[in-house]
């Protein structure tokens, strides 16, 4: 059993759109058998919380070069290209 991965999900308020993204990631990872914990935050909190995360998924602009991979999560809201983004997230989480 591999170690639980932490996904930081960022949006404007840490309430609305990030909940949609976090739930979708949790469901997909459960199906793929990857133990994962999501944590929702506001965009402004990303730089501080990035250290504790294995991956950042965001629906709003966040600072780059955080030392953690960042994936754009807008597809979860528009529904367009959602499967590809989920695939990208799962592959990222399967590393190491």
């Amino acid at each position: 059993m591999s170690k639980e991965k932490v996904v930081l999900v960022a949006c404007g308020t840490a309430i609305a759109t990030s909940t949609v993204v976090a739930k979708a990631i949790e469901e997909a990872c459960k199906e793929a058998g990857i133990p994962v914990r999501t944590r929702q935050c506001k965009a402004a909190e990303v730089p501080t919380l990035a250290k504790e995360a294995d991956l950042i998924v965001t629906t709003t602009p966040v600072a780059q070069d955080l030392g953690v991979p960042v994936i754009q999560g807008l597809a979860f809201l528009t529904g367009i290209g959602k499967d590809q983004v989920l695939q990208q997230i799962i592959e990222e989480l399967k590393k190491d």
Binding site: C11, G12, T13, A16, T17, T58, T60, P61, L77, G79
Partner: peptide
């Protein structure tokens, strides 16, 4: 696609 303005707030 009409979305929540939460996606703009990170700017």
């Amino acid at each position: 696609i009409g979305l929540d303005s939460a996606i703009l707030i990170g700017h």
